[in-house]
Design a protein around this nucleic acid. Structure first.
Length: 532
RNA sequence: GCGAGCGUAGCUCAGUCUGGUAGAGCAUCACCUUGCCAAGGUGAACGUCGAGGGUUCGAAUCCCUUCGCUCGCUCCA
């Protein structure tokens, strides 16, 4: 079985994250807090690189996307319009026998006879349970099967072979209080609100309830008109945002994969409805973007996003794709593609690319009373734009990058001993530290001086890590675990011991462990070429 | 939220059954030594044994509560 192995791999990754300062548990000195994680020195750099690169790719390098940075707490009506207030607080019920959980509104109504019991008692041991319980039995079925379920219920409470107390029956129609699978009574419906609630202002009253946003998308819709008015953009165009979002998850799992406070990178790309696009002047010429319908735009963004993942080292071989079936789609979506990564704990979603129709803008128009219509000069038509939404989770992407980079290699040293080299093979674009700078020996001031000069030469352009402690091999390995793609060593040849090699250094490649000599003057252009 | 397992140094773990006041390896830091892949030597620092309470002359060890982590179920609009 590969199951224990993958857990072992995950444990090694979690351990490395802590040991090297990528990720710590939040509030650890107080025992931690479930579902919250902090990024340490290397993790903070890694995350910043990922977000910066996304931002550059999505907006700075494009003409048709602009940015937004909105607040986390917004007007509570936003969540009514989006549907979060109702759908994010489904009452849940649990089966008292099997503990299986249902959404209260999804329990099928049933008819039949309810068998009530006031308790169970074991005549042999004298043990008893005074808990009342009931079972719903479909009409015409054997009453013994209801009693059997009840005896299981009392057995689970420590009363074996219970004699059932106080049996009585009652016919019902359309009850949703019983588990359709076994007839057992369910718990009372309990609300599960996944939005974090707070109060704006000092008084905690129902009038000033507010929520921490459960997604960043709604802020973009809410500010659509303002951005449209100032950005000098014509549809199709997009608004993107990076920011924190909060969900009071019932059960956070898998390290930082599902946490209660997390960060999203979202684009809302606004397009013409298909009928408006069809009226465009270039209609009939395939591939002319203003005429594209939603399906073409949806495919376009899936492809763009996959290329982006490839450009930071997550190739198609480690990704997977899931085109959601009609019945899986959320209420707002016409189509959704999930981009998944093959994590050690299973293949899980990194990003969802949804075609949302005009659901969100229509809802905000309805709830706010403000028009969300766009006037298209070209076709002289007025419409509420439709939207394609690529929405990625930053933290789960970080986890995917860590899992993908994590390698344990068998290496043989000069004495023939085998040992394990742990190396994080990050793409240089996102690696937290780009280059390590090492004087071969610390106790030779000329080497140290020269090394510090090289450090200063590179430091303005990238993250560098200067290290002069211990043996050179140890320093290389230390940077391997941090995922630093290059190591530069200043040796006696750099100082001119071999005149032809003066002012050259060795450049060590993390992945191949090979070294080449390079002139100091060539370092900066070479490294910039790799990390941009 | 339910069930099971786990929580001892930065990391990996021993010690818990059978109460007597905490250990190993690795890592870290300093100095010495260094000539390119975790070399060697000397020394140092690091734990109220997840937290709180109880039993006891005495608790890492027994009991209760709680928090956290892992797995299964559930949930993931």
């Amino acid at each position: 079985m590969s199951e224990p192995k993958s857990n072992e791999r995950m444990e090694k990754i979690v351990s490395l994250c802590k040991r090297r300062g990528f990720i710590f548990q939040s509030s650890e000195i107080y025992g931690g807090i479930n579902g919250f994680w902090d990024y340490g020195p290397l993790g903070a750099e890694l995350k910043r690189n990922v977000k910066d690169y996304w931002w550059r790719s999505m907006t700075q390098r494009r003409d048709d996307v602009v940015g937004l940075e909105a607040t986390i707490i917004m007007h509570p009506k936003i969540w009514e319009a989006s549907g979060h207030t109702s759908t994010f607080s489904d009452p849940m019920v649990d089966c008292l026998l099997t503990k299986k959980r249902f959404r209260a509104d999804q329990v099928d109504p049933q008819d039949g006879i309810i068998y009530f019991f006031t308790g169970g008692r074991d005549a042999a041991t004298g043990k008893e349970s005074p808990e009342s319980y009931s079972v719903l039995l479909a009409a015409g079925k054997n009453p013994e099967s209801a009693r059997k379920v009840a005896r299981q219920f009392y057995a689970a409470r420590g009363v074996e072979n219970a004699e059932l107390q106080g049996e009585r029956t009652e016919a019902v129609q359309g009850s949703t209080r019983y588990n359709p699978e076994n007839g057992s009574l369910l718990t009372e419906p309990r609300p599960f609100n996944l939005m974090f609630k707070t109060y704006v202002g000092p008084v905690e009253s129902e009038d000033n309830v507010a929520y921490l946003r459960p997604e960043t998308a709604q802020a973009i819709f809410a500010q659509f008109s303002n951005v449209l008015a100032v950005a000098r953009q014509k549809i199709p165009f997009g608004i993107c945002q990076i920011g924190k979002a909060f969900r009071n998850e019932i059960n956070p799992r898998n390290f930082i994969f599902r946490s209660r406070e997390f960060e999203q990178m979202e684009l809302e790309f606004f397009i013409k409805p298909d009928d408006a696009a069809a009226k465009s002047v270039n209609a009939g010429e395939p591939g002319t973007e203003p005429t594209w319908g939603w399906e073409q735009w949806h495919k376009y963004w899936v492809e763009e996003r996959v290329k982006w993942y490839e450009s930071i080292g997550l190739g198609r071989d480690v990704l997977d794709f899931h085109w959601q079936a009609k019945e899986e789609l959320a209420h707002y979506a016409r189509a959704t593609v999930d981009i998944l990564y093959k994590f050690p704990f299973g293949t899980q979603e990194l990003e969802g690319i949804a075609a949302r129709g005009n659901f969100d803008l229509s809802q905000h128009q309805k709830f706010s009373g403000k028009s969300m219509e766009y006037f298209d000069e070209e076709t002289k038509s007025r419409f509420i734009p439709h939207v394609i939404e690529p929405s990625a989770g930053v933290d789960r992407l970080i986890l995917a990058l860590l899992c993908n980079a994590f390698n344990e290699e068998e290496v043989t040293d000069e004495k023939g001993n085998k040992e394990t080299r742990v190396v994080l093979k990050f793409h240089p674009r996102i690696a937290p530290v780009k280059v390590g700078i090492f004087p071969l020996l610390k106790n030779k001031p000329e080497l140290v001086k020269k090394a510090l000069q090289v450090r200063d030469l590179l430091r303005d352009s990238m993250t560098v890590y200067y290290d002069d402690t211990g043996a050179i091999g140890r320093r290389y390995r230390r940077q391997d675990e941090a995922g630093t793609p290059y190591g530069v060593t200043i040796d006696f040849d750099t100082l001119g011991e071999t005149p032809s090699l003066a002012d050259t250094v060795t450049l060590r490649d993390r992945d191949t462990m090979k070294q080449e000599r390079m002139a100091i003057a060539d370092l900066l252009p070479f490294l910039l070429g790799k990390i941009r």
